[in-house]
Design a protein around this nucleic acid. Structure first.
Lengths: 334, 334
DNA sequence: TTATTAAACCGAAACGTTTCGGTTTTGTCT
DNA sequence: AGACAAAACCGAAACGTTTCGGTTTAATAA
């Protein structure tokens, strides 16, 4: 059916190796180059990447494992990575593990069997054993957004601690002392970091920590809604709240509406991640944003360096700063 | 490095063909089965899908081409399809073409070279020539959400016309006569269908069509914002607006806030697609929703029927009904 | 027991590339 | 023109499977 390299060789009278060399950017005499290109054109030849993959033991496929594609932050990161990867000739094989550890392990197994060249993941597990095994079997791993213990791989993070700290500081500077926080799943890296940033800000301002000001929203919309309700009910004096991711921000806003709370008069609010959502709220929300494009760029970069340049250096972690987009959701109390 | 089928053969004393047969579900004597399974365990054998693909000429990869992953409707469809596909042993190769015809063509070419078994796409182009070529070269194509002229392939749609008609009818029944609509890109299939549904409703209620009530939001947030502004400025009498997709709904809400318009008192509003967003708005928006899981299921089904059962029947189109989620964004004028 | 048939088993060949080691051609310098 | 080095070229072998046609083994019947 489809033309092969042999057909091109026969058609041009050249040898297999010459055609192969041409296809891989090797030097070929001008007149042969023309011959080959004519033949390719004529026979609609396309190199069979599968055969090539078998021979070279490289598929030029990067596996991507994420907790939820249905999460704007992740989907944007994926879209960006896919773009860059394809520009480098790499295909993207996507696995959504639905925030499920078992599914994540299955995805790793699946991608390993598919012989992907590397795996980029926003991991769900706490322990990185499966990823570690994968990496030890020769498939480089890059994690994004979260760092795993027991997994010695390149890692691209945003500085959630500092970003959160400076966001909470804004609230403090506006005169707030009773600041609630809606956190995500307890054992996730970013949750811990963001909580630390929150503590940093409180400690520095010498505001006492108060556990009743912390509610867990599990990174879900419903969780965010519940958490907001819990915070409001438990803390009459609370004047501001900081929400640690997009989904929970949506949930919190749903609940804010449900309860008829007026922002910022009754409650100041800082959310996370999604500029469009923030702008669509009344009043516009102030949010901490993450440099999505840079995250994607750095992650792909790490991967390609190991793959293309055969980089063997020890794993390193890249930390990117967050940004802040001001809205009208912070009330100045002073 | 990794064990091959030959290693298993050697280890068990059996022949290559027997191992292969076992791996593909063929019959093997009980004692040999045990032998083989032991060897596989021991040597950590995993079949090399690449080699298999070369031999069988099937990659068990489905290519997916969508306009924007960064669009909840598409990303949810993709997530759902990926889930089902992987359960059937198929991998998902993702291409985001950023709503760009040229990139779409590149993606088709890319996936063809990668020898995917089939392509599922939400197409961007008007003419399906590239997809048609792909299909004629033996790679089945299924389009989702949009139907292309000149492309004879299976197609999964939602009945946008009827869905839109009945949504607009709700507005009419609430007493509205001056109903604006924010449409998407002109040449996209869904745009036309939704506009037809809008006309259907108006015609049936004997409301005169008025071009100044139609604004094009280009399916983007900014476009939606601009369109809403345009509609409001041009039509003082407009009491309701119907917005044809999620992005434009977000944009429209941003602009609603910008202009200080109060919903539903000053303007009734029906949006599209995203339940969470609708619930997070004040007041909660009424929206038309699409049966995302069914869409994904049907699309994958169409593909697998052709791939697995070798179905050769002529292309057929599946049409799914929309649903409606009521909020508090419609003011009764009567 | 022997004949018959079905079920298991077998290895070589093939899928379409790349790569290795060696050969030919080209170009340059005397 | 001859010598030499460098560049271009070459085909066989290999990557790890599946498949084909044929052979052995087991199961059943006579």
């Amino acid at each position: 059916m489809a033309a092969t390299i042999k057909d091109i060789a026969k058609r041009t009278g050249l040898g297999l190796a010459t055609i192969s060399s041409y296809l891989n950017g090797g030097n070929v005499r001008e007149k042969n180059r023309i011959l080959i290109e004519e033949a390719i054109e004529e026979l609609h030849f396309e190199v069979n990447e599968i055969a090539r993959g078998l021979k070279t033991n490289r598929t030029k496929i990067i596996g991507i494992i994420i907790p939820e594609l249905n999460n704007p932050f992740f989907s944007e990161v994926v879209a960006e990575m896919e773009d860059i990867l394809r520009n480098h000739g790499y295909a993207t094989m996507l696995c959504d593990c639905r925030t499920d550890e078992k599914r994540e392990a299955e995805a790793i197994e699946f991608l390993k069997k598919r012989r992907v060249d590397g795996v980029i993941s926003v991991p769900v597990t706490r322990e990185g054993t499966y990823f570690q095994e994968l990496q030890e079997s020769g498939i480089p791993v890059v994690t994004v957004d979260r760092k795993l213990e027991g997994l010695d791989c390149d890692c691209v993070l945003v500085d959630n601690r500092v970003g959160t700290k400076s966001a909470v500081e804004r609230l403090i500077q506006a005169g707030h002392r009773n600041i609630g926080i809606i956190t995500g799943k307890n054992d996730v890296y970013t949750t811990k970091e963001r909580l630390l940033g929150y503590y940093d800000a409180l400690d520095e301002a010498e505001i006492e920590r108060d556990d009743s000001m912390i509610a867990n929203g599990q990174f879900t919309i419903q969780g965010g809604a519940n958490a907001l309700k819990e915070l409001v009910e438990k803390n009459e004096k609370m004047t501001a709240v900081y929400v640690c991711n997009y989904e929970m921000m949506v949930g919190a806003m749903i609940e804010v509406n449900e309860l008829g709370i007026r922002i910022p008069i009754q409650l100041s609010f800082i959310g996370f991640d999604n500029i469009e959502f923030a702008k669509a709220c009344v009043p516009r929300l102030s949010i901490v944003t993450q440099p999505i494009k840079d995250i994607a760029k750095e992650a792909v970069n790490c991967m390609l360096e190991r793959l293309e340049d055969g980089k063997q250096t020890p794993a390193h972690t890249i930390s990117l700063p967050t940004d802040f987009m001001g809205g009208e959701s912070i009330q100045a109390l002073n």
